[in-house]
Each structure stands twice: as structure tokens, then as C-alpha cells.
Design a protein around this nucleic acid. Sequence first.
DNA 1: TTGTAGGCGTTATCAG
DNA 2: CTGATAACGCCTACAA
Lengths: 338, 338
Amino acid sequence: MNEKTTIYDIAKALNVTAATVSRALNNNPKISAATRKLVMETAAKMNYKQNKLALALKSGKSNNVGVVVPYIDRNFFSAIIRGIEEELYPLGYHVIICQTHEQESAEIDNINALLNAQVDGILMSVSKLSTQTSHFEHVLNKNVPLVFFDRKKDVKGVSTVTIDDYQAGYNATKHLIEQGCSKIAHLSGDWALEIYKNRYKGYKQALLDNGITFNKDYVIKTKSDIKAGHKSVEKLMTLETPPDAIFSSSDYVALGAIQQLKKMGVKIPDDFCVIGFSNEPFTKFMELSMSTVDQLPVEMGKMSAKVFLEQVKESNVKIEKKVVLAPNLKIRATSTKK
Amino acid sequence: MNEKTTIYDIAKALNVTAATVSRALNNNPKISAATRKLVMETAAKMNYKQNKLALALKSGKSNNVGVVVPYIDRNFFSAIIRGIEEELYPLGYHVIICQTHEQESAEIDNINALLNAQVDGILMSVSKLSTQTSHFEHVLNKNVPLVFFDRKKDVKGVSTVTIDDYQAGYNATKHLIEQGCSKIAHLSGDWALEIYKNRYKGYKQALLDNGITFNKDYVIKTKSDIKAGHKSVEKLMTLETPPDAIFSSSDYVALGAIQQLKKMGVKIPDDFCVIGFSNEPFTKFMELSMSTVDQLPVEMGKMSAKVFLEQVKESNVKIEKKVVLAPNLKIRATSTKK
DNA sequence: TTGTAGGCGTTATCAG
DNA sequence: CTGATAACGCCTACAA
């Protein structure tokens, strides 16, 4: 009971060979119903459990996938992981998680460790501070499927699952315009990440399409925290003509902005509208529920898993799939004028 | 470059044997400095990476630990996982995550799958619906370290890391009393989970210690969602003498309670105080920031990892360690009278 | 239908 | 110091 029983133990107990036991256990057709039954029964009796490690070594498939994210306790990422896990677990895969803390060095380290662990694939969101792409190409060279979700880099052969950030920026901005706002500021992130650049582009195009001239002073690139929101609003409100709305690329920055605006006595949403990004859980529970863009992270995770599965199924073909999900604008109190 | 290179490839290239290569790579003392250097260099040149799978099969140690939680995208759990990962990754361990969705069947399934995958340990929070303990004993029988964090069952040989829920309940209640509340209700969870029972006990004792008679009608066992908060308040406020405060075992229930109280026109915190449990991120950002009990999940995760590490270090001895962390009462607006 | 033998990539034990 | 060999647990041609 205590010791691990192997197919050899079963074989010995039944006076057959391990090969026979293996065949019986795997429903191999070339075996008599009688011995199969016998093997099954004694296997159960001896509490046999297949050693996946041995199987993995033999087959070259570990049935593990690696998931690399900046921080696992950021709701957006944990929801994605949830989606991945729920899609992959029923097929016998396990999910190994790694965190980069937004450091490229950790990202490289993680990838190498996962490769050494012989994962069957790597699903990841690239770190904000990543500039190189050689570690990604390294993965591909080992014929390990690589899927980027949300944050991606342009690497040939890598499939990606993203939301349409351009469209999200466009829709959010258009909505603000429809609410009567005309001086719309945009709080963005580092443009080294495509997501931020695309949200910005959508923002800009929505302005142009609605006859609003683009004002460079209304665009601020910041970090993604509450304090950044405070500072940005301080800066914006000292402009000659301050804005009357903010589309922020981050819920946290938007939160900070709202706090600062309140402090300054600005009335939201009547005099000023705000939209954030990510649909962080807290946005729903704020004094004024915050409008935001839902990125459907669980769906994104499931989709990433599916793309990975296609990849392994057609391992002979090189697939490079680009899935773009539609964003979901959540219109709430901070952008709803009466 | 494309194919995986093994120690045999290196051996062949150097006209030595694989054993020699292995020794060189592992800094085995029985090897000449010259050959070691040579091996190291060509290994680097051929882009050799150790196959951890083979090593795992050989050594019986996979360097993977399994973490089982109800849902990975619940902030409390993802923060714990973050702590575990950060503690274990530097030591070469990988974290495999599984979700139970609060189902016992899934829990059993997860554990078996992890065992088959030859994990070196399992860290978990038991599902709300778990009643059996045989699957836990099964883990111990295989000599795989098992650590419970937060939610535990009484199983001999299992180490646990929890916060002092009794103390947390006591402190929260005492704080409410100090705020002038005397008719304090308690919204609890299923007492099959010790955490809820202990919070209740602390609540009760604090009442007694402060000369407040315990009122059975003030205690309601509910699910842990917002709707449960609505319903509980509805019920409580129809009592002959309704309460003037709530200590809730869940932030979500507390949120629902607050929403319902507002709807009924009850003034918080002046006429009614509320304290939740878990320090969910949203509590800080509510209209009135919510008082709550912080369980220090990242610390809890790190501690769980440390307990696991002790366990593997002393694999010959059976350790059963019970770590109890101090809770951290976060006093915010919903329980601060002027 | 079943047995034999070899191999997945490493490391450990013995010799030499 | 280095080489040969066996072993970890499983699967799969090939042979019987």
C-alpha cells in the first residue's frame, strides 16, 4: 500500500510479462478479454497508478504546459489562467505557472526552465520590459508551440490571442463623444507594448472620425498605478483648456484619476467622464461604478488553450494563427450623463 | 540547433562516454579539470539543456509541487499561489495548479492526477464540499508531503498554515463593540469548514467577554456571495430588535449587506457598522472603504512553501507542523464612527 | 495472444 | 580519472 506499484509488480503477481500488463491497461486490442480483466482487477487491487513521468520520458510528451505571466495575482491574468486550466485539464494537461514580475531576465529564465522541464507548450503574456525576441525563437527552434495572449511581440511562427485593442480604444472614445465630451484625454502605457499603442490609435481615429481635432497635450504615457492617475490629472487640469473626459488604458490609473478629480471638486459624470480598461473587479463596486473595457480574460484563456491544442494536433505543419477577440465595453456610472 | 542534444551527443563529439559528460556537468569531483572544461564548452556550444524529465524518473523527484484551490482567480487564492511560487521557484520547483470549483469529486481527481504526475508535494485549501479524508490519507501513504493552507481538515500527519480565525473574529467583534455597537450580528459560512466555525467562536467570546448576551437570531449561515448579503440583511432587519452591526465572514456578503442597508436607508457607519473578511481588493475602493480582516495571503503562501520544504528536507521524520499566522484587522470607513 | 528486447536521458555503481 | 552497465517505469516493434 505504501510503496508504489509498477506494471512489473502486477506482472509478477499474475505470472505474465510487463508488456502484457501494459497492453491490458492501455486497451490494446491484441489481448484476450480474460487477461485484460484479470490485469485490471489486480491493478485496482494493488492500487496501481501509472507513472506519468516514465510515460513522458518515453513519449517525449510531458502533458504539461507552461504559462508565463507578469503576476499571477493580477485578476486579469489569474482569470486567463483559469480559462486555460479549465480548457486543458479535461484533456489531461497540467498547467505550470511562472511569474516574470515584468522582468525580461525572469522571462528568459522561466522559458528556459519550462523548456528543460519538457513542457508541451508555452502560453504567455510578454513582460513590459522585454525587448529581445531570441528567447521566443529559441522556443520555436525546439518545436515547442508558443502562444502569446494579450501582450505580444512580433515573432514569426508564434500564434497570438488578443482582443482588438484598437477597436476597444475606438469604442470607448466614441462612447465618450456620444456622451457629449469633446476634450478627451488619454492615459496610456508604454508603447513598447502593442496593446497600448493600439488603444491609442483607436482613440485617435475615433476623434478624427468625429471631427474632433487631436490634441497632443491630452495624451500622457504613465505607469499603471493609482498614483499615476493622480499625477496625470494634476497635469491635465493645469492645461489652458483642460479636458472633460479621460479614456485610460488602465483601471488603476482611471481610479487614481477619479480620486484626484473628486479632490479637485470636479463632478463625475456630469462635468467629466472616465473610462478605464480591464474590468478589474473593483470597478463594479466603486462609489460610482466605473465604465471600463472588459477583455473577457477567461475566454481569452480558453481560446489560447484551443490554439495551443490545434498546434499540437498538427505538429507537422507550422501554424501561425492570429485570433482577435472583440472587446466588451462596460458602460457604467462614470460615463453615463443623465 | 533544432534537435535536442543529449549527453550522448556531447560524448560522441568528444570521444568520451556519457558518464563522463554527466560527471563533468554535475561538478563531480572525480574528473579532471581539463575534461570538465572541455565538456562544459562543447555543451554550451551544442546548446545542451538537461532533460529534467529523465532526471525526475531516475531520481524519483519531479521538482514539481501541486497546488489545489477552489478557484484560481479568487484574489485570496491567487495571492497565496503567488507566495508559493516566489518561495519555491528559486529552489528549482515548479508550481502546478488545479481548481476544484468547490467540488469534492474534482478535489479527489486533482489529487490523483498530481500523484500520477509524481509531484514532490501537494499544497492545498480544501473544498467547501469535502467531507471525506481518505484522499488525503492516500497522499500521505505515498509519502508525499501534504500541506493545508487556510481551509483544513483534521487529518493526522498533515501540516497546516492558517490564520488565527478565532482571534480574527474576536478582534473584529471587539472593535465593533468599541465603536459603540452592542447588537452585533454575524454572517457565517458552512461550519463544516473550521475557519467559519472559529470566526464564529471568536465573535461569540468577544461578546461574552464584554458583557453582551449572545443572541442566536443574530447569527446566519449563508453562501459567500453578494445576494446572500442582501437576503441576510432583509431577514435581520425584520427582527424585533434589529442589529446595529455586522461582522461578516466574507467580503462579498458584507458588500451585499451594505448595499441592502443603503437601500433601506440605514446610515453607515453612524447607525450601523460593517466588517468583512479577506481584504478583497475591492473593499478599499468602495464608496465607504470597507473594514475587513486581512489574511496576508502572500505570507500564507510563502509559509506554506516553507513548511513543505522542511517536510522534504526531513523526509525520514514525520512532521506535523501547525503554523498559525496573526490576522490583520483593517479598520476602514464602514466601522469608524466619528 | 503473449514474450523478448530495446530505448526514452540521466545518474550511480563498479570496475579498470 | 574514465568506461561500461544497470536502473528509473513505461511502451512498442518484432518475434514466437
